[in-house]
């Protein structure tokens, strides 16, 4: 009942700032990873997979657009401006999604780890007391079903091949692992988000839910999983400690916009 009242009332000013920050984390993560995935267009390992992976990339960008729209409704500004105009320092994406694609093994491994993460973050959002987020998360969660199935099936195939593929995946896992912690940084408003029921989970709970999903699966496939802990004290553990590749990505994204600053529409 209390939650319904709040949804009807809309978030308070303070809650609004916390909400916008959460929405931008989710949007920036999905936009940056969708952008990275789309770099495989036309050059995936086979034609059918090229088409399939493009759908996943489009979904990620589409989900980002949905979260930017929600932030926009809270007064954060136009969705496209949120996606294109914010400088590196204002970005809320995790270094995990910013890292370059590398080879297909790293892409497959990141796809697997990230979509498992999205699942636990979205599960928490489907219990959100803020209805617009709860509804958005429920929709997105349905589209993520395919992503999870695709990422797991592909990883199982590649890992079971052994040899070069397995070695490349192992290498990818080692490259990616230090950045995992950045996904679980819920930002400066984490306590408030939890207290107000906007995001009824904390970082430690999300991380242990994620580990419960991915660690047994990775172990079963024969991967030695690096030491797990609630919080890694690596330099990449915080949103805001961006990977150097993000700056280049943002410059690329602005390439057309910067051609004609006076243009009102494209």
């Amino acid at each position: 009942m209390a939650q319904d009242d709040k949804a009807a009332r809309g978030p308070s000013v303070a809650e609004g700032a916390a909400l916008v920050d959460l929405l931008l984390q989710m949007a920036d993560d999905d936009l940056v990873l969708g952008h990275r995935h789309s770099e495989w267009l036309g050059v995936a390992p086979d034609i059918e997979e090229d088409v399939a992976f493009s759908s996943i990339a489009q979904d990620e960008v589409g989900h980002a657009a949905l979260y930017y729209e929600l932030a926009s409704q809270l007064g954060a500004g136009d969705a496209d401006r949120l996606a294109f105009d914010r400088p590196v320092g204002e970005r809320r994406s995790a270094a995990f999604v910013e890292l370059e694609n590398g080879d297909w093994a790293r892409t497959a491994m990141r796809h697997f780890l990230y979509d498992a993460f999205e699942e636990v973050r979205l599960d928490a959002c489907t219990r959100s007391g803020w209805q617009p987020l709860q509804r958005a998360a429920t929709k997105v969660r349905r589209e993520e079903f395919y992503h999870r199935l695709h990422s797991r099936t592909q990883l199982h195939h590649l890992a079971k091949a052994g040899g070069e593929a397995f070695a490349r995946l192992e290498h990818a896992l080692a490259d990616l692992w230090p950045y995992v912690a950045s996904l679980f940084d819920l930002g400066p408003h984490a306590a408030e988000l939890r207290a107000t029921g906007v995001l009824p989970a904390d970082a430690a709970a999300l991380r242990s839910a994620w580990e419960a999903v991915v660690v047994p699966e990775l172990s079963e496939l024969g991967f030695g999983v690096p030491a797990c802990g609630g919080t890694d004290a690596t330099s990449a553990a915080h949103r805001g400690a961006h990977h150097p590749a993000l700056a280049e990505l943002l410059t690329t994204m602005r390439a057309v916009l910067d051609v004609d600053a006076a243009a009102a529409s494209w």
């Binding site: 267009l41 690329t252 390439a255 494209w266």
Partner: peptide, 22 residues
């Protein structure tokens, strides 16, 4: 032009179009 498409909608449109070509 996918990574450089100037709006979210254009980015999605370009991705979808290249996907169709493949």
């Amino acid at each position: 032009w996918v990574p450089k498409a100037p709006t979210l909608r254009r980015k999605l449109g370009m991705m979808s179009k290249v996907q169709d070509e493949m």
